[in-house]
Design a protein around this nucleic acid. Structure first.
Lengths: 202, 202
DNA sequence: TTATTTAAGGTACTGGAGTACCCTGTATAA
DNA sequence: TTATACAGGGTACTCCAGTACCTTAAATAA
């Protein structure tokens, strides 16, 4: 009846820690979760955790990556830029809604602590490697090939704009992002920016 | 040679605490500042502080309000929309840059700790969003009167866009927001959005 | 098989947040 | 002037983050 016959190592132990983290995250949420509690549930101690992750936020991000929902988004190619954008964002909304849920409150906030107040927007979707940005770039590329856009190149700021807008919308919308909000983003902001024929830099 | 003859109370003590907070904030920055250290410098103890402020962030915000810089921004009216926008943001940048400086790193992060990311952005631009939004509305109104814009009304989302962009830029810029970044925001995004002649909602 | 290296587990420590409790000086009211 | 209420000050406590150091189990190399 000893405590344990085997001493787990490497990946096995890491998995146990991440599983415990995921369990606790779902039980109590990010803010209440402590490293000590994770260690206890995983049947190990703080050291094993601190050897692998610098802080709670990184630990939880790992658990999220392993057990959390994965975005399953197809890049549309309907032959029309506006339609492509609409369909793409429609798919992204559910995932974003989860990432901003109460359960994860405090997580992104912590991730911001060390990287200056910075890159909130980038980091927010950094969890899936600038997925939004890459997809939008692809959609724009398709539009260019069709001749819908006049082969201009877009700045980083413009390429990040869709992610910024949609994340901001998901966040401020409290609940779910509506069709109308999405249409407004696309028609009032994105389309004018992507197809700026009228206005030229002085 | 006793420690102290008088026992300070109320506003006198509060001022001493805020002064100590401000001093320490400038010496070591927000992240390093501790309540205990503030108490020591103020010649009091933690209890007197915790009786007044719930946490470090709120204490520092109070000190900031009392001793920090105040924004002093004039709304320009040069007869040209783009110039107006340029001059306005130029003035706003110094203040925003201070609010997001290393010295204050961690402060906004802490202020957002207990709320979900949802309310985060909302709060983030609540810092100053109204001010920026109101000013931009005024600038747009001037442009309309001059006939620079075709009397269209702008949605909330569009009116909040300048604040969103400039705050995001200040946050992600690490150091100071440059002229170039500002020009990019105005020329690549704001001007096309405000003067969208080419693209029309389907 | 044995020796060596690595990392897990245990224990203990520092230091700050935040709370509790009590004593005492000070302002106010009686 | 004295009694009372309140808030400041002191001390001590719990909890957690994070680090240090030592031991021991397990993987690997010799």
């Amino acid at each position: 009846m000893g405590k344990k016959q085997t001493r787990r190592r490497g990946k096995v132990l890491e998995d146990a820690i991440l599983r415990a983290t995921w369990q606790l995250l779902n039980q109590v949420g990010y803010n209440v979760l402590t490293i000590q509690a994770v260690a206890k549930i995983a049947g190990t101690n703080k050291n094993a955790i601190y050897r692998r992750w610098a802080d709670k936020a990184r630990l939880v991000v790992s658990a999220l990556a392993k057990f959390g929902p994965k975005p399953d988004i197809q890049i549309p190619d309907t032959g029309n830029l506006r339609t492509d954008l609409g369909q793409f964002f429609e798919q992204a909304v559910d995932y974003l809604t989860y990432l901003t849920s109460d359960q994860l409150a405090g997580l992104w906030v912590d991730r911001l602590r060390d990287i200056s107040v910075a890159k909130m927007m980038y980091r927010l979707d950094a969890i899936d490697n600038n997925y939004i940005r890459k997809s939008v770039t692809q959609i724009l590329h398709q539009a260019e090939k069709r001749g819908e856009l006049t082969g201009q190149s877009f700045s980083d700021r413009v390429l990040n704009l869709p992610a910024l807008l949609v994340i901001n919308a998901a966040i401020t919308a409290q609940g779910k992002l509506t069709q109308a909000a999405m249409a407004e983003i696309i028609d009032d902001i994105l389309m004018p920016v992507f197809s700026k024929h009228e206005y030229h830099r002085p």
